[in-house]
Design a protein around this nucleic acid. Structure first.
Lengths: 225, 225
DNA sequence: ACCTGAACACCGTTCAAGT
DNA sequence: ACCTGAACACCGTTCAAGT
């Protein structure tokens, strides 16, 4: 019994590419990218592993499809507004979409070739800069300077979001003694944000700060030219 | 014979944590992160897989160690210069170290807890901003705004570096017809850089452009406060 | 006490055998 | 022609049996 495919509620309707992708996204949403395996996904769908390969070429191509599902959730551009708020709003919409799917940044970064939805999104963003009076060259620099921020995320290399309420681990305290600047920074953050619900460091605030820093800098370069 | 551990030249001296890490870095340098498995590494060292676990707790902890090897290759800070060239030079040194180990950005991003060398590097970089007259708050914003650029890399989401010499793939040309802005951008790049050896898009130039954009923007914010 | 072979619980994907 | 069970060539790690 345990080894048999689980013929659950959703097992009846026939498999399709879309159903495979939707199930894969759901599975990754629940358990993260590392819990998404072809075998596990097949079990979830009440299907033998090989059945998936009728609808996706292989796991990599399935991940491409999943990326396009998420990128497809980004709101369309708002028309008839200036380039800066246009870019800003679209990037923040992308951020909301990606935050709904925590596995998406990692998977997006792992793709070697851009998927159709990613290309369409880039096309649209490039168009916003061009419409805002940016030269081709400066637009190119801008796209690179934005990097993954264009898609609403940044890879945080070390986790600021210390739990302000938690008792400080003596192990951690001893380790941090060797790093006075880091300690100072973390203490300042948790103190400043003590009135804020949740983590000690507001990622959304930091994201918008850097986004505006870049957009303002790019605008200045455009005006100088 | 094929199934026996390969007792090669380097098989004689006893295993140590350092030897394991050096071999792991070398293996990843050659074949990329995905070719680094505990079993393959053991074979390379002429040793049974389980022997590795005497020197590293598990694969994750080994990856931590590898990160510290690479971060340890970053040049120490240059003393007695202004904060901006100090940060700039250190970041570009970090970039050179990471470019020597193409697997390092991905592995660095996959770490959940900062390793000792990473903490020491952050401590030093934070100190540079503080010495440059940045408030704790602005320093905190700066660290976030820099993101992985502090370590000399940015995750490129789609590969600009088209081979200018290669014949255009008709498949690609047809696909790009739907994206005129992207096409325009790529044509402009390959044309402008036609005198440059190598890829159509100079990543180093783009990296330094964005780095200076950020550092200039941060300086302006510091002066305004 | 130390070391290690076999085993466990997985992978993604191929392929030949079954309907 | 379609579908799928078994098999292949791997993983990281545990554990008990051997020295």
């Amino acid at each position: 019994m345990a080894t048999q495919p689980d013929a659950g509620a959703k097992a009846r309707e026939p498999l399709s590419r879309e159903r495979v992708l939707r199930a894969a996204v759901a599975l990754a949403d629940e358990g993260g990218a590392e819990s998404l395996s072809m075998r596990r996904l097949a079990r979830e769908l009440g299907v033998v592993p090989m059945a998936l390969y009728k609808h996706v070429a292989n796991k990599d191509e399935m991940l491409d499809g999943m990326v396009d599902v998420v990128v497809g959730e980004i709101d369309p551009p708002v028309a008839d507004i200036d380039w800066k708020p246009a870019v800003r709003r679209r990037v923040l919409s992308a951020r909301r979409a990606l935050l709904r799917h925590p596995w998406a940044p990692g998977v997006l970064e792992s793709r070697t070739n851009p998927t159709p939805a990613v290309l369409a999104y880039m096309e649209s963003m490039i168009g916003m800069f061009r419409a805002g009076g940016f030269s081709i060259d400066l637009t190119h620099h801008a796209i690179h300077a934005m990097g993954s921020r264009l898609f609403g995320f940044t890879q945080e290399l070390f986790d600021d979001t210390a739990d302000a309420g938690a008792a400080p681990d003596p192990e951690v305290v001893r380790a941090l003694a060797a790093f006075p600047h880091i300690t100072e920074l973390m203490l300042a953050i948790t103190h400043d944000q003590s009135s804020v619900v949740g983590p000690g460091c507001d990622d959304q605030l930091e994201f918008e700060f850097a986004l505006d820093l870049l957009l303002d800098g790019l605008e200045r370069l455009r005006d100088r030219a």
